[in-house]
Design a protein around this nucleic acid. Structure first.
Lengths: 376, 376
DNA sequence: GGTGATCCTGCAAAGGTTTGCAGTGAAGTA
DNA sequence: TACTTCACTGCAAACCTTTGCAGGATCACC
């Protein structure tokens, strides 16, 4: 039933190879023939079968995008950016959700392997060694995780965590909690490291709580623990947890920011909509999506799979880029942080500078990326 | 480089067809041979090429899921439910986002057509006739849109809108606005129809505002218009708009629910987290995702594409199910609605019944589905 | 020992497309 | 005229897998 290249060939009185060329190498066919073939194709409603094409070219023009939890509002901007970037290069993006389950993650990579030209692995929860192993099966770009030997797109959450801690210390907080996320998260480890250093430098004490589920539920569930810990400020693994925590504290009668200050990470849209508006470390998710697609395609184009024609030309077999890109983060100060027990009276109430200085910029242009190539 | 069925055959000393059968029809091969083949396959890291398999069987074991805007929190639960349902049936789901653009929508269906066994079209923005036309290219199930002759999964937003209006009228509101969504949305038309009827029945006047973008921005942008219209209550197209509207009204100094009551639709997680907590019409998104996958697979299984063996057996060619399922909705009363100008003094302040009666149920079991077959 | 059934395996075609190679005819050059 | 060049098109192999058909071996049974 489906119309194939053969039907078009018959209808337009040429060989199938000519039809094929009309679509994949138009300059090789007589303009006159071309219009005739195109007309027939249009008439019959012919569309090249991408699976068959992929079988022989080894390129599907698809990209797989594997993410931990599509319900986390952190991801949609990344997905959209990746999709639009891919579309410009004539690629399609297939998104799949793993439910934060490493097993599903692995299974998905396998399933996608032969149907896409490469996979973007976002915030993976599986081990580095497994990732390396899988990268032999299909070109991979990792987002939010550093894997040596593989191209990675990272956000400088270390710098962000440092800025957040400094902000809190500056407000007079000396006892701060880090509300940790999933154990297997690279971001989590980075934050912990950087926050620890920054706290020490600022003469504050850092309590690490967790691991917790990176969701509102995870945040609100930790409220009691936060209260008991007696800290006056909390840096949460992400905005969702921060919002959940505020919610949970509210239920316990603890007011934010009057009694406890809370900082999130990600700057999801939601963080501007809850009350109080959330102080947070903005991560350039859109830029991350675009960069990751670029890196994947670049890698892909240089070494098409099933490379034929083993001419004596280039001697550098399967050259793979392993650049690692670190994107900058930005602290956005809103209403969920306020003066702490050691606030200096000089600055009255930490000088409120309008409701949300960051808002007027709108969705805004993501911060610049600093490329950072690493030897392969 | 990639290991094929041929390599496994060579390694285990059998014909490729035996290897093939080992995977796709294990009962047809000698257990002894089977283990040997499996061992070799494991050793070599062989994985069947799904594209090649699809080429001959006509079934990819993939499902396409096209949605208008992945950033709308309404969709993730639907996506997750669809994915998990599909996984149980050994199918994978590929998600694609259209940015609310009908052109992209069409293009995506075409692109997916040959790579998936069927497509779930969620909240489509294109015309019914185009949808029908596309359905000849690939099996389609439509969600949130009624297209005669095609299987559809609908949510009873009409009933939901009615309940919302009745709730508002009961609170003493007589001048109500409907904050409309996208013009091409079926849901939008249904709500408008039902809300109009309900308002008339309740002796209230309904002002329709819109169309608007179904986002927070769309909602907040309409705040000024709402204020000018002088209504005391608003039913918004969805929660995102409702939240944006509350935000916008707040910026104008209009308090919710004291001066204006607001009702949303969807019951996204966020609606429990903003202040005031949102009164909303809960839609069974998870059930919708599951049902849609079921309907697609059922349709698919009955008529595998490229049906071979034109025996004189069954005479009823390509039988396609065109059932339409309507899922129930539920009004969830929270804090964004309050007594209006005509509130009866009998009920003091509309009897607040605890902060959020719906919350304890947690994510909860979706409401029951009422199947409703329609002649094809 | 002959017959038939059963179980397993190999053969080869098929699916829709791309692409290196060769062939055709026409135009250009000497 | 003879030769080369060029633009275009056809031929057929290849990609990897599935599957109907047939062949071979084994076994039970009469």
């Amino acid at each position: 039933m489906p119309v194939t290249i053969r039907d078009v060939a018959r209808a337009s009185g040429v060989h199938i190879s000519t039809v094929s060329r009309t679509f994949s190498a138009p300059h090789l066919v007589n303009p006159e023939t071309r219009v005739r073939v195109l007309a027939c194709a249009e008439d019959l409603g012919y569309r090249p079968n991408r699976a068959a094409r992929a079988l022989i070219t080894g390129r599907t023009h698809n990209i797989g995008l594997i993410i931990a939890d599509i319900a986390n509002p952190f991801f949609p901007p990344l997905i959209k950016a990746a999709e639009s970037q891919a579309r410009h290069r004539d690629y399609h993006v297939f998104v799949a959700d793993t439910n934060e389950d490493p097993t599903v993650e692995e299974e998905l990579v396998h399933a996608l392997a032969k149907q896409v030209d490469g996979v973007l692995l976002c915030s993976p929860r599986m081990s580095n060694s497994l990732i390396e192993q899988l990268s032999r099966e299909v070109p991979l770009v990792v987002v939010n995780r550093q894997v040596t030997g593989l191209p990675c797109v990272l956000m400088d959450v270390g710098q962000g965590a440092r800025a957040a801690i400094e902000h809190l210390v500056g407000l007079g907080h000396r006892s701060i909690a880090l509300l940790g996320g999933p154990r297997s998260s690279w971001t989590n480890r980075e934050m912990r490291r950087a926050a620890g250093t920054a706290a020490r430098a600022g003469g504050a004490e850092l309590t690490v709580l967790g691991p917790n589920a990176p969701t509102e539920i995870g945040g609100s569930a930790a409220a009691e623990q936060v209260r008991r810990s007696g800290v006056s400020a909390v840096l949460a693994y992400n905005d969702l947890m921060a919002i959940g925590l505020i919610e949970g504290l509210d239920a316990l009668g603890v007011r934010v920011p009057q009694e406890v200050s809370v900082v999130g990470v990600d700057d999801i849209t939601l963080s501007r909509l809850t009350r109080p508006k959330l102080t947070t470390v903005a991560t350039p998710t859109g830029a991350a999506g675009r960069t990751a697609v670029d890196m994947l395609l670049q890698q892909d184009i240089e070494s098409p799979r099933g490379a034929r024609g083993s001419g004596a030309g280039t001697a550098l077999g399967v050259r793979r880029t392993t650049a690692q890109v670190m994107l900058q983060t930005d602290l956005v100060i809103r209403d969920s942080t306020g003066p702490g027990p050691h606030a200096r009276p000089a600055r009255p109430l930490a000088a409120p500078q309008g409701p949300d200085p960051h808002c007027p910029a709108g969705p805004g242009i993501p911060t610049a990326a600093t490329g950072d190539a690493v030897a392969s």
